[in-house]
Nucleic acid binder design. Sequence first.
DNA 1: GCCAACGTTGGC
DNA 2: GCCAACGTTGGC
Length: 156
Amino acid sequence: MTTRKRYWLMKSEPDDFSIDDLERVGVEPWTGVRNYQARNFMRDGMQPGDGVLFYHSSTAVPGIYGVAEVASAAYPDPTQFDRRSKYFDEKSKREEPRWFLVDVGFVRKLRRPVPLDEIRAHAGRLGEDFALIRRGTRLSVLPVTATQWKLLLALE
DNA sequence: GCCAACGTTGGC
DNA sequence: GCCAACGTTGGC
């Protein structure tokens, strides 16, 4: 069964994994999400083909730098079982995995990044409840409405 | 590097 | 179930 295409925003620290890295590799498993709400969006909400805004956090100019797409169904994050990984979770069992991810595929870089301060400047039209700019919210994976998607890309 | 804000853990 | 302590996120 398929439902209508959905839209998301996914954060990454560019020192760790950037839009240029994604362009280079094409498709990347989105490892390391260890927040239940973010996991639920990936596990329960995402479908192949969904649109993704690729956001750079913890950098000089935080903001949206590219467009990507969901490139797989959700599956268990293998790093949770890898003792050498910094994402290892000793409480997760293979028969009952705790953390899920999707593969993310490169679509394009923005002609011009859309910085966080510009996004904030449009808070009124984006909606005060938009999780990216809601005070105190630090979700690394969050839903974006079709309207917000269009608005944000119109700022490019 | 600082620190506000939030989530998770674990003792009780 | 409460809540203090701790860890993490992420802008600045």
